[in-house]
Write a protein that binds this DNA or RNA. Structure first.
Lengths: 138, 138
DNA sequence: CGACAGTACATGCACACGCATCTAATGTCG
DNA sequence: CGACATTAGATGCGTGTGCATGTACTGTCG
């Protein structure tokens, strides 16, 4: 009976170990996949259009949802902290790709709108973006 | 015939658009999944063990492949640049979790070995790591 | 109305990252 | 052997990030 219990116990441990290894492997694959795509995007978008992958995501968001967009909405869309988003918008504004406008209804917030230059930049970068995705995900 | 060609053309465009949208969606899901897991790992590992997610990956690599490990091997395992790996090893060494040893065969390279303290830290952090993976991936 | 908690965004700060470059050691040819 | 390309790893530098905090505004409750 003691042996029987040991056996059961060993089996349970083995099963949970296997499950655990599966999780770890899944995580490593996720990490590898993400790194490959992100690095490639960062690289190609930078060299061809002078913007980073996060900048592109923000532009895409602004170009797609074609109404005024709160800064907080952007924070939700791209996976960055609130402060990082704030600086990202500041960079884009400095390059003339977006504009910040006061929100009269709630004067704490701001609206971020894409400019014509920004839309143009987005459309150009979009091709590169899709191209990289096809290469790295397809 | 002209209409026919237009039709074919429109169809092809539509098909490629659909495929493209699929890729974009896949990328966004990948990004969201990665961000969620990485952020959670970073947070919990930091607060409970005082190490980052990348530090953990390096320790795991060193603890698992239990022979001497070149710095370049680490660069391949964790998804960081060579310089980032170099600094990562420097941080781990400063905390007494790994040691750098000269490689006599090729005196340009170094061997990185995990210390007892490092192995202990790894085993403790491993539980937290698996726990977070279970929560965020499972 | 007035004080006080809560919210939206900006900013100071420390730090990890990638790129370019440096140093030291190793091949490789003539 | 000696010059030169190559490789492993370290480091200066600029930049992007998260955390904590600051600032301005809004909502709520006595």
């Amino acid at each position: 009976m003691c042996l029987h219990l040991m056996c059961v116990h060993a089996k349970l441990v083995a099963v949970s170990d296997v499950a655990e290894q599966g999780l770890v492997q899944e995580w490593h694959e996720l990490l590898a996949r993400y790194s490959a795509v992100f690095t490639a995007l960062e690289c190609r978008l930078q060299e061809r259009h002078g913007i980073g992958a996060n900048e592109f995501e923000a532009l895409e968001r602004l170009a797609t949802c074609d109404f005024k967009c709160r800064s907080a909405d952007l924070t939700g869309a791209i996976h960055l902290s609130q402060s990082a988003t704030s600086r990202l918008v500041a960079r884009l504004e400095k390059e003339g790709l977006v504009e910040r406008a006061l929100c009269e209804l709630d004067r704490r917030g701001i609206f971020v709108t894409i400019t014509d230059a920004g839309r143009e930049k987005y459309l150009a970068a979009k091709r590169t973006h899709r191209e990289v995705l096809t290469e790295t995900l397809g």
